[in-house]
Design a protein around this nucleic acid. Structure first.
Lengths: 233, 233
DNA sequence: TCGTGGACTTGCGTTGCAGCAAACTGCGTC
DNA sequence: GACGCAGTTTGCTGCAACGCAAGTCCACGA
């Protein structure tokens, strides 16, 4: 396989604090893999054989209850470390990751983790930060679900998506990958129907613009107001 | 200060994989602190000056929304690492930790973290597992809040508490620290009133036994059935 | 012993949202 | 160009749980 140049991971926060030479060593153990749209990178319950860094694209991470209910855990964007189940002491992936657009990821065998962090403590520190941020996000979500109404939760979710994967278009900010009302419902702990109703209402007011698996925020600022719970005036 | 003997941390999972000599080095930088009941160990929003290992007692970790709503993030039991905000890249504690019973913790200055993990990679690995477990728990909670009814969520919460801090008594399993209905409500994203109603109903059926800041599970197995969503027969 | 306040209980009215059902629409495909 | 499906919209109905309010009970301190 052609060796990977370290310039491709220049913007990966988890590798910040590593010298170019260290990076070369780390990259020499990786291979890059392409995932077509709707293809799964790993599946909940299967052996955690690898960990990854997303180079390009977007993934949806979803998790299923024993009863068969599904939720969207989060979306992964380029530059993020993911699939570190093994490092967290799990033998199996706790969720499923699916490419929502054609994506490319670096991939290391999980067993490389042990000796990599022994040799490069900065890597462990970076991973700890990544997982820590995720923990913060997840706790924020619990807080939202405990204290906010559905409308506010959806507003928050859209704003977060826009921040993470927003693309400026003439009419506002578009979420840069296909996302259905069902997906939004699974992010916010509500139903497809309720999301549809609320987005329709917002579209009437000119706050958003919809479409098939497409959402454009036209008035992010007003949405932010809604998210913070200011009643509509 | 009297130096700390490594036997006191023999059962701390985060220190597994470290040699006795390593442990001595790590412990030499720690001091132990006693916290009376209802006393805070650290406060949300204040500088993350230290990280801790709980030696004895129980802590309640709670978090407040900007709007003033509060939730219980989790309970910390003896042997757990906590307050690792700095290691996760935060400058401030994201939550408040309060001793629910008289407690004792080991305490390190946050700035020690850097050089400790550089010297003892196993420590970083342990911390990653700790934070990883917490992430799993929090995600499980999101799943519960998305897919379960209040009654099931409360059953799950009580079973988790019993597992983590249950004490066998003649009549069943008692939760080993004072916990109010309000606390349970803040753990499950519901209200004091609803918790009270449900616990009363359960008490009628002989599933639990209540009291002022006291909960005894008399039929954990039946509760488990409820938690799994099997309708009451 | 009595008083006070915090924890808990319980009834009642209200409501946000889920659940069901049915129709619509845009997109890919044959 | 027609078909079929997946994604979406929308109306209606029911109910779980919230919010309020009015109590009771118990622990602790004076």
């Amino acid at each position: 396989m052609a060796s990977l140049d370290r310039s491709i991971v220049a913007n990966v926060p988890v590798f910040a604090g590593l010298s170019p030479a260290d990076l070369d060593v780390i990259l020499s153990e990786a291979r890059s893999v392409r995932y077509p749209r709707e293809c799964s990178v790993f599946d909940q319950g299967t052996e955690a054989h690898s960990f990854f860094v997303l180079l390009h694209g977007h993934l949806r991470v979803e998790k299923m209850t024993p009863q068969g209910q599904q939720i969207v855990v989060r979306y992964v964007s380029a530059g993020e470390l993911f699939g570190v189940a093994q490092a967290m002491g799990l033998k199996e992936y706790p969720a499923t990751a699916i490419a929502v657009v054609e994506s490319v990821a670096l991939c290391w065998p999980s067993k490389a983790w042990q000796h990599l962090i022994a040799r490069f403590p900065a890597l462990a520190a970076g991973a700890l930060q990544t997982v820590g941020n995720r923990l913060q996000d997840t706790q924020a979500r619990v807080l939202e679900m405990s204290s906010e109404q559905v409308e506010q939760r959806i507003a928050h979710a859209l704003l977060r998506l826009a921040k993470q994967a927003g693309r400026k278009v003439e009419r506002g900010v578009e979420i840069d990958f296909p996302i259905s009302r069902q997906d939004v419902a699974e992010m916010t702990g509500t139903t497809l129907h309720t999301v549809s109703r609320i987005l329709s209402a917002w579209e009437q007011q000119g706050l958003v613009e919809g479409g098939r698996q497409r959402i454009v925020l036209r008035e992010p600022h007003k949405l932010f107001g809604l998210a913070e719970g200011r009643s509509k005036e």
